Amino acid sequence: MTHREAIFPANRHALYEAHGYSAAIKSGDLLFVSGQVGSREDGTPEPDFEAQVRRAFANLKATLAAAGCTLDDIVDVTTFHTDPENQLGAIMGVKQEMFSTRPYPNWTAIGVNWLAGFDFEIKVIARIPQTH
């Protein structure tokens, strides 16, 4: 049986403890990252939508870094959107900045009607680089 190891970024432990989940789970050479939202330091949503998407990516990067990964190690992306038709332009602009090098990870976008006060969430699976 593969061992599971919880991964947490610096300065975000209280959020995960309060809701009873791990930021990410390392299992073998894979990292399964929980949905990351555009929360400010106090846990509240960033009110500007594009800034919220950027914060979600910043929180994602911090979680990946805690496991020794970067955006380049991502193989699978799932994003959740409260108003996909009107949000897609802003999301695509940020997404293209973050994933600017081919091959791009695969991506599934899902429209939802509730994200606990947030309007965007991103969860990923990454392959953890081998250290030599």
Rank of each mutant, 00 (worst) to 15 (best):
E50I: 06
T63H: 03
F99G: 10
N59S: 12
L60M: 00
Y21G: 06
Q87D: 09
I7H: 04
T2L: 01
G35T: 06
R40W: 04
N106M: 14
L31W: 00
L64C: 04
G20Y: 01
D48Y: 03
C69A: 02
T82K: 04
S34V: 01
D29F: 01
V77M: 00
T70V: 05
I110P: 13
N106T: 15
A65G: 00
A6E: 15
T101A: 05
S100Q: 14
A65I: 01
S27T: 03
N86R: 07
A65E: 08
N86G: 10
F49T: 05
V33C: 01
W107S: 09
T2S: 13
S27G: 06
C69Y: 00
D72E: 09
F49L: 08
R55N: 11
A14C: 08
I122Q: 09
D119S: 14
V75L: 06
S39F: 14
T78L: 12
N86S: 13
T101L: 07
I125T: 15
G28L: 04
I74M: 03
E50G: 07
E97N: 12
G111K: 00
T78A: 12
F57G: 07
H3E: 08
A109L: 11
R102P: 13
A62C: 04
S22Q: 10
F32V: 00
D48N: 09
D72C: 01
T2Q: 05
A67M: 00
A14N: 07
I122V: 15
H81E: 09
A51D: 06
I110S: 13
Q36P: 11
L115K: 05
A23M: 08
S100M: 13
D48M: 04
N106D: 15
N11I: 13
D48R: 12
G117W: 02
M98L: 12
I122C: 11
R4M: 03
A65D: 03
I122Y: 07
H81Q: 11
I122F: 06
R40Q: 10
H19E: 15
G111M: 02
D48W: 02
T82S: 12
I25W: 02
T131W: 02
A51E: 02
L30D: 14
Q96N: 15
D119P: 08
A51W: 02
F118W: 00
K61G: 15
L71K: 10
M98E: 15
D83V: 02
D76C: 05
G28E: 04
V37N: 06
A90C: 05
A58I: 03
F99D: 05
T108K: 11
L15P: 11
A18Q: 07
H19N: 14
H13R: 15
A90F: 07
T131V: 04
A10D: 15
M1D: 07
A51Y: 00
I91G: 00
H3S: 02
G89S: 06
A6M: 15
M98Q: 13
F118H: 03
F80K: 04
M1L: 09
T101D: 09
Q52I: 10
K123G: 14
A126S: 00
A14T: 04
H3F: 03
I125Y: 09
E17W: 04
P84T: 10
E17A: 08
A23K: 13
M92N: 14
D83P: 01
A65T: 01
Y21V: 10
V53T: 05
I74A: 00
V33H: 00
A116S: 14
N106Q: 14
P9S: 15
